[in-house]
Amino acid sequence: MARRLLPHLLLWLAIGLCFLPLLYQLGLSLVPPERLFASPWPFSLPITLENYRVVLEKLPLARYAFNSLVFALGSTLGQLVLGLLAAYAFAFRRFALAELLFALFVASMLVPFVVTYLPSYLLLARLELLNTHLGLILPMLTAGYATFLLRQRFLSFPKEILEAALVDGASTLQILWRVLVPANQATLVALSITLFIGAWNQFVWPMLVASRPEMYVLTVAVQRFAGGEGANAWGPLMAASVLATLPALLLFLAFRKRILETLLEGGVRL
């Protein structure tokens, strides 16, 4: 019996430790300012929504959320479209240089962002795209991961159905849109949410490119608040951070089954 329970206990211990910082994040956002350091525990009574009121009053969070949304949606949709087109070519067509080109797509995932920041920044500055939504989005449209994942899925799609559609006279775009997209809906949903959360949480690139206050995304705004007015105001700061996290968290919780399944199936293929 003890043997049976041991894995459960250890896993719960790990989960507890993993969640502790998140509990502090939430707890601090609910603490009345004068009781900030009164208790070492994540939660203590009484709780208040005062911090949220302060932060909503002081920060134009709607504006920042809008910037985050445009940035994340644009990055997600762009990567999806580019990934779908490329994955179709790699999965269903034979052509010269296919292997080399596919290697370029896959290898792009391994290049760390930090070595491309400076050249990308200089390029966008020259194009006068700093502090624009387009400038934020464009460098995110490297669809290596989307292409890799979708190609994997397309390869296991029954060939006969494609042949039938071709015989029907369907064009490539029609096949993609009417056959492959509906058939791979689950994967596409999981991929979209993953890409969206990834972009929503981006910090360094938006900090560099969108440095004008009205162009801040939420992550940058929270950081600026932490470095300025919110420096020692842990309550309002954590309230802002909870609000910035909430959309990503809710999306994950709503689609967690699909996301985890897709990651578990397509994560590593050995």
Binding site: H8, L11, A14, I15, C18, F19, P21, L22, Y24, Q25, L28, I197, W200, N201, Q202, F203, T219, V222, Q223, A226, W234, L237, M238, S241, A244, T245, A248, L249, F252, L253, R256, L260, L264
Partner: peptide, 27 residues
Amino acid sequence: WAELYQSLLFTPTVVAVSIAALVWLYL
């Protein structure tokens, strides 16, 4: 149980790392 543990252990990765770092600054 395994499904529950997967969800729970994965959840903290959904928080932006820049924001998580702020929480740890407090800790």
